[in-house]
Write a protein that binds this DNA or RNA. Structure first.
Lengths: 316, 316
DNA sequence: TATCTTCATAACGATATGTTATATTGACTG
DNA sequence: CAGTCAATATAACATATCGTTATGAAGATA
C-alpha cells in the first residue's frame, strides 16, 4: 500500500489543527482540496481515519498514528527548505580551502573560527599545499579556495586572483636573541647563528636562498628543517636560531612574546598573498562569504600592522 | 522555498543508489522521470545538487544534505505504509474491551497477554462494567467489544451476540475448607459459614439471592463485600468463608491451589457469557482478530474443563 | 577510436491537484 | 424542536506535473 506523502502531510495538518479548514489554512491550501485528500486517503486505506459524525474532528487511532508519520515528513520538509535557504545565503555548506602551511596555521585557522561565530553551520575543510598543487586542486574541484603567495608571473588561467597582502619577509628569532641587543645587525652577524629552514617546496625556502646570495654567502648552517609553524616556533623559543618568515606570520605571534623580527631589512619577494578562486564553476554562497571574510580580515590586519609600526616609531 | 516532498525522496533514492537509473528502479519509476525531477530540483533550488561531468554520480554537499532529509521522508512513508498494512490485517491498532470484573480479571487479562504474543503492536484498553453500561458504551463507541454474561431475555438491538461459555456457577471456598471433607455437603451446612458477596450490581449477586431462596433461606451472613476478584480470593484464602462464582473463574485458579468449588450442585443461571459487538459500525481488523482469539480461547477452556472433570471422575 | 552504458531531452497522455461555487450536515440557541 | 450558523463534502473545471516511450548526447571503457 503506497501512500502519497503529500496526503500524509495534509492529514497531519488536519489532525494538528483539529479541523479541515484550519488544516488547509496551515498549509496555504483551500479547504476542499484537503477535504478531498482525506476522502481519498480513507478510501485508499480502507479504514476510517476520523470518527464520523463528530464535529470537533476526532481522528481514529489509525488516523492518529498515520498523522504522526505525517508530522515526521512535515518536519523533514521544513528542515529541507530551511537548509536550502541557509545554503543560499551562505549560512550553511562546506568551504574547502587549501593554502601554504605557515599562513594557514598562523592566520587562516583563526579566521575560520571567527567566521564560524556568525556562520555556525558552515563546515570548513582545510588542506595544505603550494601554488602548483593548489592550482591543480582548484581546477580539479577538490578545493573551493586557495590562499597562498603567488609570483607576479605565476599563471592562473581560469582562476581569479585577489591580492590580500603584499609580500614581505623578515628574519625571525626569539625575543631573547642576542642580535636584538645590537642597534643595527649586519648581514655577517646573521651568518654566525644556526638557521631553521622553511618547509621544503615553500616559496620561503627560495626566498632564503635569495637572501643568502644577496649577502654573498653560499653556505649556511641549517640546523633544523621540515617542521610545521608550531614546530619552528617552538624550536626558535629554545635556541638562538634564525629563520625567514612572512612578516604577517611573525606579526600574528606578537601577543605570545616568543618570537619577533630582527631589525634588518631584506628584499621584498616579487610575490603577494592572494585568494584564488575558479571563475567558471559555480561556488557555494558560503565560499564567497568566507572569501570576503578573509579579505576583510587581512585588510584589518594591514591596518593593524601599519598602526603597530607607527607606534613603534613613536616609541623610539 | 517550498520543496516537493516527492522530489526529495527521488533525490534520496538517486544518492543512495549512486545513479539515476538505479534510483528510478528503486522507486519503480522510469529513468527519465527521475532525471527530470533532478533537473527541476536543481533549477528550483538554484544550486547544483550533483557535481557535473562525473559519471559515478556524486552529490554536492547540499545535495547530500537534502538527500538526508529525503531519507527521513522515505522512512516515514514506508513506516506509514507498513502501519496501514499491519492495521488492515489486525496486527496493529487499538482494541477497547469492557467486561464484568471477575471474568476480565480471571480469564481475559491472561488472554490479552497471549494475544499480544502474536500481535505485539495491538494495544488493548480494558474497562469494567455490567451489561447495561457495556451496551451503552458499545453504542456510544466507547468500547469495541464487551465480554459479559447476558440474560436470554436481554435486549441488544444493533448488537451481535456470540456465546462463548454456558452460564454455570459454583460455591467457592479455600482448598482447606472443612466442608470439603464432607462427602455430600447439605445446603444447611452452607448457611453455617460466613459469605462473601459478589460485587454490587453483578449478575452473581442476583444469583446468590436466587440460591438462598432455593435453600429456603432469607438471610445470610455477609461478612465481606465490594472487593475485586483478587480481594475476594485473598479473603477466601484466609477464612472459611464461602462465595458464589462462575465456574470458569474458579477453574482458572486451579493451578494456584488456593480456592476450589464445593461439590454441591446449584442451579444454572439463565445466562451465558458472550462477546458483544456492534454490527453497524466498522470495526478495526484487530478487534475481530481479538474477538476470534477470545472465542478460541474459551473453546479451549471448555475442552479443558470437560477433560478435567472426566479425569476427576476417573480419579474417584 | 569505437562501443557501450548512462543521463538528458522531447512529446504526449493521464492523473490529480488546486481553484471557486454550491450543497449538506452537524452544532448551537432561543 | 425549529432556525441559524459554521464547517465539511461535493461538483465542475483549468492546469500543473507526473509518468510513459522514443531518441539524442555524453562520459567511460576497451
Amino acid at each position: 500500500m503506497k501512500i502519497d506523502e503529500r496526503h500524509l502531510i495534509q492529514l497531519a495538518a488536519v489532525v494538528k489543527t483539529g479541523g479541515v479548514t484550519e488544516g488547509a489554512a496551515l498549509l496555504g491550501l483551500a479547504q476542499p482540496a484537503v477535504s478531498r485528500t482525506l476522502s481519498l486517503l480513507e478510501k485508499r486505506v480502507g479504514e476510517p481515519l476520523f470518527v464520523k459524525g463528530r464535529r470537533p474532528l476526532q481522528p481514529t487511532p489509525l488516523g492518529l498514528s498515520l498523522a504522526e508519520h505525517g508530522f515526521a515528513m512535515l518536519a523533514a520538509s521544513r528542515k529541507a527548505s530551511d537548509l536550502v535557504e541557509s545554503f543560499r545565503v551562505g549560512k550553511s555548506g562546506v568551504v574547502r580551502i587549501g593554502g601554504t602551511p605557515f599562513f594557514m596555521d598562523a592566520l587562516i585557522a583563526r579566521l575560520c573560527a571567527e567566521f564560524q561565530a556568525s556562520h555556525p553551520d558552515v563546515r570548513i575543510d582545510q588542506s595544505y599545499g603550494y601554488f602548483p598543487d593548489l592550482r591543480a586542486a582548484l581546477k580539479a574541484d577538490q578545493i573551493d579556495l586557495a590562499i597562498c603567495p603567488i609570483d607576479i608571473l605565476d599563471e592562473g588561467s581560469g582562476l581569479e586572483f585577489q591580492q590580500i597582502l603584499p609580500g614581505r619577509n623578515v628574519v625571525a628569532c626569539r625575543v631573547t636573541h642576542p642580535l636584538l641587543l645590537k642597534r643595527r645587525p649586519q648581514p655577517s652577524h646573521l651568518l654566525d647563528y644556526p638557521w631553521v629552514a622553511p618547509p621544503p617546496g615553500s616559496p620561503l625556502l627560495a626566498d632564503l636562498r635569495a637572501l643568502l646570495l644577496s649577502f654573498g654567502a653560499t653556505e649556511i648552517k641549517i640546523r633544523y628543517s621540515g617542521g610545521s609553524l608550531m614546530s619552528v616556533i617552538n624550536y626558535l623559543k629554545s635556541a638562538d636560531a634564525l629563520t625567514i618568515m612572512p612578516h604577517s606570520v611573525v606579526f600574528a605571534q606578537r601577543k605570545e612574546k616568543t618570537i619577533t623580527a630582527l631589525p634588518v631589512t631584506i628584499p621584498h619577494p616579487e610575490r603577494a598573498l592572494a585568494i584564488l578562486k575558479r571563475v567558471d564553476a559555480p561556488r557555494a554562497p558560503a565560499v564567497d562569504q568566507f572569501a570576503d571574510f578573509v579579505r576583510l580580515g587581512f585588510q584589518e590586519l594591514r591596518h593593524l600592522i601599519k598602526r603597530h609600526e607607527e607606534s613603534v616609531i613613536w616609541g623610539l
